[in-house]
Design a protein around this nucleic acid. Structure first.
Lengths: 150, 150
DNA sequence: TTATTATTGAGAATATATACCATCTCTTAA
DNA sequence: TTAAGAGATGGTATATATTCTCAATAATAA
């Protein structure tokens, strides 16, 4: 059994999603997704960090491919792109646990508190349904000034 | 009466906010804020667009200063920084009218629908109050897949 | 008015992300 | 099983966005 034939046997959300679009399940794409699955939902990495971590685990993937793969995984709904205060975009695994995490952010110092809200979750569901969209995730960002910065 | 003495007389939210922090009310900062006030809430500009518009109105302000000023105005809660699909950040005037605009975004094609929600607005208020934050604005981003991209 | 110090302008430097293209590999069909 | 076609990768060059540096300027407080 060769390495390449392995991939044809494995069935996964990634493989299925790719194949129905004429796209391919490659070792690089698997490595990137596996990395996020290993660190768990809720942890986020930049493209550069993904690159470094893969190199450290002897799984070299070029930076260009990492950027391409991250964008692809976001479009497939497997990763979520975050916009943090500094230093570009970060990505995290999209899961049911993270689907209702909202953020209260201080616009001065960047301090961030997380909270949950059924009302918000529901508002997202309704908005998606009304417009005929298939819901993936909703997140509320509340911009405010924290007690220390007032 | 000199130009500079004019600024000492004017009282404005911008001037007040700046002075209590040891910062200064400069013509450049006024020009940038006035630009956003003139185009009205709901319209957003990139740093580069602000630069171009000021040059066209014979009010030359350097690009470096524009970046510095945009960040400052965001931290003061006068502007809101938006993260659009492509080409960097954009900024818009923060007002009561824009404070409850939420977005339903297709992760495939970027199609965006706006909607409003009292429940979301309220959830933001509650979260801010519970944590002792002073609320500025809250926005819900719902990631989904639109009918055309499913 | 003067001293102090924040701010500006201009361009260099950096960071982030994409484009390009030759090479490689997966997939399909013969 | 092999060959052809299409998609993907790697490495680098390039584009774009943003920040940094520093001398000169100007706003503020006394």
């Amino acid at each position: 059994m060769t390495l390449s034939s392995q991939y044809q046997v494995i069935t996964s959300p990634l493989g299925d999603g790719l194949h129905k679009d004429g796209k391919r399940l490659t070792p690089q794409r698997l490595k990137v997704l596996n990395l996020f699955e290993n660190i768990g939902a809720g942890n986020h990495l930049s493209a550069e960090e993904v690159h470094e971590k893969l190199i450290k685990s002897s799984s070299k993937v070029s930076l260009a491919t990492i950027y391409r793969t991250l964008r692809l995984l976001v479009q497939m709904g497997l990763l979520h792109e975050l916009e943090l205060s500094e230093g570009g975009h970060r990505y995290e695994l999209l899961s049911n646990e993270t689907a209702d995490h909202h953020h209260l952010i201080c616009i001065r110092c960047g301090r961030t508190e997380e909270f949950e809200s059924d009302e918000v979750l529901n508002a997202g569901k309704v908005a998606a349904k009304v417009n005929g969209f298939k819901l993936i995730e909703s997140s509320l960002n509340v911009r405010a000034i924290c007690p220390n910065c007032i």
